[in-house]
């Protein structure tokens, strides 16, 4: 299987994630879409590691995995504390920071 197939899957997956962030209004689903995008990039890294015969791509996947874990922890904590404060997590309603 040529590299192009994997890269096209990765690009499509990234685009699906972008649709999720742009069109959904539930912050939890937007968060899942961000995870989707991170994983699409991971697939690209693994593909390039495979086809360039180098292990360096694995390192980037590992770092992305760590950053994603940290991001999930902090992001979910923020969502939970917003939910506690106003019992409502529709992103369109969260406009109190608007200038």
């Amino acid at each position: 299987m040529a590299a192009n197939g994997y890269l096209i899957v990765s690009a499509l997956l990234f685009a699906i994630g972008v649709v999720g962030v742009l069109a959904r209004r539930n912050p939890l689903v937007m968060f899942m879409s961000i995870e989707l995008m991170l994983n699409a990039v991971n697939l690209s890294f693994m593909t390039f590691a495979h086809f360039l015969n180098s292990v360096d791509g694995w390192m980037f996947v590992f770092l992305v995995l760590t950053v994603a874990a940290a991001e999930v922890v902090v992001g979910l904590a923020i969502i939970v504390s917003i939910f506690r404060a106003r019992r409502d997590i529709d992103v369109d309603e969260l406009s109190s920071l608007k200038g």
Binding site: R25, N26, L28, F83, R87, D88, I89, D92
Partner: peptide, 12 residues
């Protein structure tokens, strides 16, 4: 944990 109220956000 947030599911029941999070669903309400899905019907704008």
């Amino acid at each position: 944990m947030l599911a029941p109220d999070a669903q309400a956000a899905g019907t704008p």
